[in-house]
Design a binder for these strands. Structure first.
Lengths: 338, 338
DNA sequence: ATAGGTTGTCGAAGCGCTTCGACAGCTTTT
DNA sequence: AAAAGCTGTCGAAGCGCTTCGACAACCTAT
């Protein structure tokens, strides 16, 4: 294992000079710099992470807490995680992967041990028990998601309320008046994950403003659950012509069931998804959808964090504006054509 | 930030005593131990990770390299990653998330800097460029996947060859004679990811032994690609009654297309999947499948690694035996019923 | 030519921990 | 009763780096 001292000796300079070449915190003459860099290359030197962390009290590591349960939005989580990891690397940080399992203890452990310089939390509950800890420490953090109280916190998320509104507007514009919302599994609402409720808020508010009827039903996803849910919806509101689906694993079952019942998409009914683009594109009817900008959220979170670590940046809530992509699953309401 | 020295002072012992209480590497009297533990709790002490790493040259971190591209098996990757993280924690390790982006350089960086004590590599190519580096270092590593040459390496993977054989046997037992294999995207075969080819080997070998006809077609996944692929298959081998699908995003399209063509599953054709259980269960016809034991692979990999780090354990290839779960998508071949 | 600035380099201290050898105070063996 | 062995604790060295103050060596202004 090559050390700083060996590089210094090889280059004929002192250890501190090598350190300054590496960090750029003091000016170094061009000749010395190139000589040192040459030695570093020749010897294959890599600074020791532990020593560095000890001396500088900076680990250059960002902790990422991902939810343990993988019952929803797995590809989105993965995409965020990967975006976080790659973006972090471009800023010289590595990423430590924590699962939600340890809960608040993980926050204490990481903060207390100096293992990481900062944290990113995913899957934040409206009233998350980790939040007081984050507020009580001076270690920077960013949430992906939106808790009930954001004071003193930095958050990045899709603007789900606007997303709901956008879906409704699109359907309204096409002449739909009766809309059904296929939501996430009941458990998601019960544990008060903000995004599902915020979407619903947006849907309700805008549909009310536009004088539309809205029916919301959570759904476990999968064929059997979707069949039951759909039957109930059509029973209760036979005039339904527009669907908004916020549940990856309900998309395909819904399309299949509609087809099976002889309801053509988009001729008879329109379907709007809130899901990753990949899901929308791979569906049997290419789905008009608001995409979940996973990469953007991950990248954003890291950039906020890096800004904080460098003393720039402050607490703020960044809501990414939703974008609706029109594909083949929405069209004019049948009654509107008459 | 509380330090060892402060704990020592608070407990009225020397720093080294506290250290030994923590590590258990020397015997400590019960009274002293409890007193120290008390102080640790009262002061909320957490050992500094950097200092620890520097002094012991052990970081207690395991690096996990996941593939950057998320074009396949995303949920599986995620499940493995989570299993790795939670298993690692039970052994006192944290997990550093690396993306494939840096390639071999990441291996050099991690090894050289002592950032991690060991590595787990996912998505190993048959002739992976990281392998020579792994062989050339004394840092323990485990591969999830199987390269062409495994000498000096430890690997964990599903026995895909046996998986292929198992699928064929199941279909053979049901009387099917003409089988089509819907594979991963062509790119997967081109980049020589072992698992796809090994499955194919198993399929081919066993079907030959059993005197069955086998047709293999890679497929991008999604409806359009699947439609084209299926048409070609049925054109070339109209007698096909059994399908083996090794491509998550082709499962649902295949089922939908078969239905659409009036071929009932499992009455007219049988379908066997090689996919995570979740995919098999959520499909429109509950799929007979060989599951990808993601959790088990992740757990296994960590346990191998920990064994190595503790001086136990050696290089070996662990192939997990495939398990076929019979669900609703396979049944007797129609000709067999005549 | 001298005072005052820059610029580039060095030496030394110290980050918080682990670990080794030393040793005091016991207990056991001969 | 002396020798030998344990047990439990301590002090000190050192892990490889960053960073601060010091200071030559040079450059500019007076």
């Amino acid at each position: 294992m090559v050390t700083l001292a060996e590089v210094a000796q090889h280059a004929g300079v002192s250890a501190s000079t090598v350190s300054y070449v590496l960090s750029g915190k003091r000016s170094i003459s061009a000749t010395t710099r190139t000589r040192v860099e040459q030695s570093i290359r020749e010897l294959g030197y890599h600074p020791n992470a532990g020593a560095r962390a000890l001396a500088s009290s900076r680990s250059n590591i960002i902790a990422l807490m991902i939810p343990l349960r993988t019952d929803m939005y797995v590809p989105v989580m993965m995409e965020i995680a990967i975006a976080v990891a790659t973006t972090a690397r471009t800023h010289g940080y590595d990423v430590l992967l924590l699962t939600g399992e340890e809960g608040p203890d993980a926050v204490r452990r990481v903060t207390g041990s100096g293992l990481a310089d900062a944290m990113i939390l995913m899957d934040v509950q409206l009233d998350d028990e980790r939040l007081p800890l984050l507020r009580g420490t001076d270690q920077p953090s960013v949430l992906i998601g939106l808790p009930a109280d954001t004071t003193g916190l930095t958050c990045v998320d899709l603007d789900f309320k606007a997303t709901g509104a956008l879906c409704v507007e699109h359907l309204a514009m096409l002449g739909h008046r009766d809309i059904a919302v296929i939501g996430e599994a009941p458990a998601v609402y019960e544990r008060h994950t903000g995004f599902a409720e915020r979407t619903l808020d947006g849907l309700r508010l805008r549909s009310q403003e536009l004088g539309m009827r809205l029916l919301h039903r959570p759904c476990e996803g999968g064929y059997d659950a979707m069949a039951v849910t759909l039957a109930r919806i059509l029973d209760e509101r036979p005039a339904t012509t527009g669907f908004v689906v916020q549940n990856e694993s309900a998309v395909e079952p819904l399309l299949a069931l509609l087809r099976q019942q002889g309801r053509a998409v988009p001729e008879d009914v329109s379907v709007v998804g809130v899901c990753p683009d990949q899901v929308a594109v791979q569906a049997s009817v290419r789905l008009t959808s608001v995409s979940i900008p996973a990469q953007e959220m991950g990248r954003h979170a890291v950039e906020q964090l890096v800004a904080k670590l460098e003393g720039r940046g402050s607490d703020e809530v960044v809501l990414i504006a939703p974008e609706l992509t029109i594909r083949a699953s929405t069209g004019p309401a049948p009654s509107a054509a008459h």
